[in-house]
Design a protein around this nucleic acid. Structure first.
Lengths: 192, 192
DNA sequence: CAATGACGATAACATTTGTTATCAGTTTTA
DNA sequence: TAAAACTGATAACAAATGTTATCGTCATTG
């Protein structure tokens, strides 16, 4: 099996039963893309045509708010999916941009192939449901964290969960992710 | 058709094709529950066993944070679903409590019947997927609002979208929903 | 009907967080 | 390799938001 598809196969297999034949047919439609650091693979306002699976590297999902300021919404690490799922599903302009923070390899899954999967794979609809549910869980946790945890607690949780995040992601992006200013994060860190 | 099921049939029909036979078998498992004002139908920490469909009345979804303070997370109006979907799906202790703000009638859909539906209904899995997606959209919008809009803008949007909300929901719950203090909301309102 | 509690406005004050600017060290780029 | 851009710390100040307390009105309850 194409080595780049190994992990994605593993992830999908954890959701549904998929046999060899199905996988060969399904994965034949994957496309692979190399993205250079700082390159943007989805621009806010464009319709999001693909779900990206990060094989290696790192993506940043962000948007520009009404005051023209970038807000970092999510970091997509290796072996996770990244997309504007609402734009992707509804074919409406994306609210987010997605940018590579490092040279990154992604597997592209188009809307068409995902929807074909609903019919072609025996458990295609189930896969769709579980993916939607999984995405939902992420957002649910995110909202709860915002409501219940102070920025510094969220920061500590983040660095505990991803110990090398500080080596890979500039601190002001993390501040933006926490929805506080970079100055404030610096203060919080150095006074706790 | 049982009149209380009319709306829920309408909503489900908007998601998938469901014929009369399927509907009769499916809806026969619904249970109806009357909840008195202030009554709690889901307690934080319990496993959420049902999805609630609000026939009439009004529910408040909230949780108690680490400082012992209630944070209102969501208001469930007529003809919408309400639940702790993560607790419900994963059978883990609920992060939320759900309380009636008015005398309320709900239709209960248990985990078992929803999952039976995945098999019994021709489009059961699709229904599950679309419900998960729909729930996801709500959360996506919620997070975006938090990141991009100031509390007073969110307040104005809320009152524009639900003009009678002020008659039905105490203001301090709305403040909690906006994640600001009730004093601050009062100030914002009366100074804009 | 009286007592109690819930509700929302307001004031005074404390705390948190943002803004702007500067600086030194580092990385990127031409 | 030199210039430019990026990064994070820090200080000084401004703005936003929270906390506590008080008050009058209204709704609920016994």
């Amino acid at each position: 099996m194409n080595n780049q598809f190994k992990k994605i196969h593993q992830v999908i297999s954890s959701y549904i039963e998929i046999n060899n034949e199905e996988w060969i047919s399904y994965s034949s439609k994957f496309r692979v893309k190399e993205i250079r650091k700082k390159e943007i693979i989805l621009s806010q306002g464009d319709i999001c045509r693909d779900v990206f699976f990060v094989v290696n590297g790192l993506l940043r999902v962000f948007f520009v708010d009404n005051n023209g300021e970038e807000k970092t919404f999510h970091f997509s690490f290796e072996n996770t999916f990244s997309t504007d799922y609402e734009s992707f599903l509804k074919k409406i302009p994306s609210s987010y941009s997605i940018q590579a923070l490092e040279d990154t390899t992604v597997v592209l899954m188009s809307f068409e192939m995902l929807h074909d999967g609903y019919k072609i794979l025996r458990n295609g609809e189930k896969l769709g449901r579980l993916l939607a549910e999984e995405y939902f869980f992420i957002f649910n946790d995110k909202i709860q964290a915002i409501y219940t945890q102070s920025p510094i607690v969220r920061y500590n949780n983040l660095t505990r969960k991803f110990p090398n995040i500080l080596q890979r992601i500039p601190q002001h992006y993390i501040a933006s992710y926490l929805n506080i200013s970079s100055v404030h994060l610096s203060r919080l860190k150095n006074s706790q």
